[in-house]
Structure formats: C-alpha cells, structure tokens
Design a protein around this nucleic acid. Structure first.
Lengths: 233, 233
DNA sequence: ATCCGGACGAGATCGCTGCTCTCGGGAGTG
DNA sequence: CACTCCCGAGAGCAGCGATCTCGTCCGGAT
C-alpha cells in the first residue's frame, strides 16, 4: 500500500511544508494573524497554489489544530508513561506539568486549542479524537487510582442530584471506567482547574499576581490532586 | 465644568454610537471579525471618519475591553451586594454564578477578556483597574470570611515555600487583607478554577462531557468554596 | 460682527487579505 | 503516442486597516 507514486510523495511533502510554514507563522503571530499568502510566499508558491492542498484558510488551521491536539496529547501520555504507576499524586503532577510545559513552549498553539474559538468556525468531528488524548491522560490517573482502591475519601460532600449523577456515570464509562460519580465529579473540577490555571498564566491574568509561576503551579496541582483524593506515594 | 459645548456633546454621542455598533458586531461575529468599515457603515459614516474618534481598530477594541471589564465587574459586585454577608459559601456561589451568567450573556465579550489575547496587542495599563473588579469581588468573599474568623481549617497542607509564601503575603495586602498565605493560595486556586470552568463551557470543551451545566457549575463552585474553607451559612 | 483655527466628514489611495477563475505545461496512464 | 488530470502561475474581485487631501462648518477670540 505504501507504493506511493512520485506525485503522491510530492503532494505529501509540499503539504507538510505548508503546514510547517504555517506553524512557524502561528508561533510568531498567532492563528488569527495567519496569512495564507504569507505562508505561500514562505514555501515559494503563489497564493492560489496553496488552495490545491487546503480548500481554505480554515482547513489549514484545522489541520494544525489536529496536529496540536495530538502533540499535547502525546506529551501528556509520555509524561504519564515515565512516572511510576504506584504514586497517583505524582502522576497527576507529572501530567499537569507536561501540559503546562507544552503550553509554554507552544503558546499560540495552546491559544488556538483552548483560547477563544474562531467565530463561525465549527471544529469538525475529526478533532474530538485527538482533543481527548490529553483529557484521557489526566482521567487515567484518577481512574487507575480509583480502580486500585487508592483514593482517599474526600470530605463528605452533599449527594449529587440524580440527573447529574447519571451523567457522571456515563462519563465514567467512557473516560474513567470503574470510578464512582463522586470521583468523576472531583476529577472534572480538577480538570477545569488545570486548564484554567494554564490559560490564566499564558493569557496574562497572573501578571502582578503571582510571579513564581512554577512553584505556584506545582502547589496548585498538588492541592487539586489532594482534592481529588489521589494519595501521595 | 460639565458645560459641554455642542461639539463636545456631539463628539461624545457619536463616540457612543460607534462603540455601541461595535459591540453589536462583536456580539454577532466576535472581536477578531470586527470590521471598522462595517461599524462605520452601521453608524452612517465613511470609514476614515471613524479615525477621528478612535486612532485605530485596536483602540476601539481597547475601549470595548474596558467597558466589558467594568460590566462583568459590576455584575459581580451587585451579586455580592445582594447576598447576606453572613453566609460566605452562598456569597461565593452568588458571585461565581453572576460571572457565569454574564459570560453566557456576553459570550464574545467574555472571549475578548479571557480568551486568547490578540497577538501583538498589549493591554494598556488603564485596563488593569477595571479588570480587577471581578477578581476583587471574589477576593472580598474570602477576605471577609477570613477576617471574621469564619474559615474552616483546610486539610493540613505542606508548608508553602518561603518565596511563594512571601508573594502570597503581598497579594493578601492588596486583595485579601487579613488573610494568611494559605488562604490566599486556596483562593487563587479556586479563582482559576472558576474561570477555567466558565471558559471550558463557553469554548465548547464541555461538549459531550457534561450537559447539565447549571447543576455542574453550582456543585463545582460549592466544592471549591469548601476547598477554600468558606463555611455554609 | 468678523475672522481664523481647528474639528470633522467625504473621497481617493495604498498595500494587504481570502478566494475564484482561467490558462498552460508536464507528469502519469492508456 | 495520445489523453487525462494534476498543479502552479497569474489576473482579478471584494473587502480590510490605515493615511492623506480637500472642502466645510462650528466656535471662541478679536
């Protein structure tokens, strides 16, 4: 099957060059400032030629979006794989740290993924797979600990409303198999906290508030790990 | 001093019309799609005339940014004022609910404030005042409870590193007077959680995860109120 | 009452953008 | 060898932000 014709190879190569040039321009000026004509100039093409490879500017951005989701997802998964399985709190910190690290190294791509959505732009279905890789890495930390019976019982929370409870059971089925709704709930809260914190740091809302970002982030994620009930190894 | 000349009145009025038209267009298509020429057409001006009122498109956006910060800040403060002072947990929920409510009613303006910053655009100093109103409302809930000695002691956290501790003391001085560093730390974590959750909901990251957003949000903020140590009245 | 400076709106213009269409050449297929 | 189809170039369109010039008219000072 990989009997590629010369045409196919050339096409794949130029597609890659276009994406690479677009990535560089996004890193420099952000996604909203991405100019298809500038990308074309970078790769030595005339602007109309780029349309042979991407039907529109949005499709080019979508391709980069998928790549970025896979990239941060892979970073999270690698961090997970590199951390001993018997220390759930350390695993949580490792994954969240990997997320922050990737975000700092790819500010504009992170903004593309988790910042304001482009108005009128609806993320195609094919993005949800790659998008869930990061979340899956975070979820597996909690799910693994829950399955192993390692979670410390949280402070007794008031019972969740039945409707929400049912929803969380459904979430557990796909993302945190074996976790009770209460754990799913806490995991979701911690999940939003992580990205809220990273976004605040990247988008400048921590300016004049916290300067030692590394320490603060580590402490915050550790605290949220405690909130979820992940025991320190 | 308010002896406005006809010119000044006309100028203020047209400035307001331009901002109002721009607000409408932002509500419709978001800030990145804001076209100065379209705004000019809306108010019956030629595009170059708008430059008599705003030196550039960015300055127009900045004006709207300040208005939006003040708007969400006022919403938060009003929610605070309308809630009995003796129930810290309820006050926290009220303020966070007001934030979410405003965000849902002004999606694109919220995205302008808390989404991806416009690349190359540096928020002028004059935005930081209005920007801190929301944060101030949230902070005062915690600070008031702390001053009143109402905070339940959190689970014993490991001592904060001295450098971070000093920073948090400084933060307490300006935003949470009378609160110990540990409380400031928890408040900051809860703060990022609130905006992380709102942003995730607005930017579509809760799609296919949680559908009953209202209940989930209320439970999440209640849980974070507990995390901070705010007692239920 | 007159006069002059400054504010203001219109219009033209520049360089840029995303996107479409047409044309010509060359590579792969029969 | 002939045919098809892919691909790049180029021209062109409408729209954009921004600048400049040119009349006009308002308002305060003389």
């Amino acid at each position: 099957m990989p009997a590629k014709t010369a045409r196919e190879r050339a096409r794949a190569e130029i597609t890659g060059e276009i994406k690479e040039a677009a990535r560089r321009r996004i890193a420099a000026q952000g996604a909203v400032g991405l100019s298809l004509r500038a990308v074309a100039r970078d790769v030595g093409l005339v602007s109309s030629a780029v349309y042979r490879y991407f039907p529109s500017r949005d499709d080019l951005i979508t391709a980069l979006l998928v790549d970025a989701y896979n990239d941060i997802g892979r970073a999270a998964e690698e961090a997970l794989a590199a951390t001993p399985a018997d220390d759930p709190a350390a695993r949580w910190r490792a994954v969240t740290r990997a997320i922050r690290h990737w975000a700092l190294a790819h500010r504009h791509e992170y903004a593309l993924l988790y910042g304001s959505p482009v108005p009128g732009y609806r993320a195609p279905e094919l993005t949800i797979g790659p998008a869930s890789r990061v979340t899956g890495a975070l979820a597996s930390v909690v799910a693994d600990a829950a399955r192993a019976g390692d979670l410390t019982a949280g402070s007794p929370a008031p019972a969740l409303p039945p409707a929400l409870r049912d929803e969380l059971v459904r979430v557990a089925d796909v993302a945190l198999p074996g976790s009770p709704p209460d754990v799913v709930f806490r995991a979701l809260v911690a999940w939003t906290q992580v990205f809220g914190l990273v976004s605040f740091e990247l988008f400048g809302h921590l300016e004049n508030v916290v300067e030692d970002r590394v320490t603060f982030f580590d402490r915050a994620t550790a605290a949220m790990a405690g909130f979820v009930g992940l025991p320190a190894g």
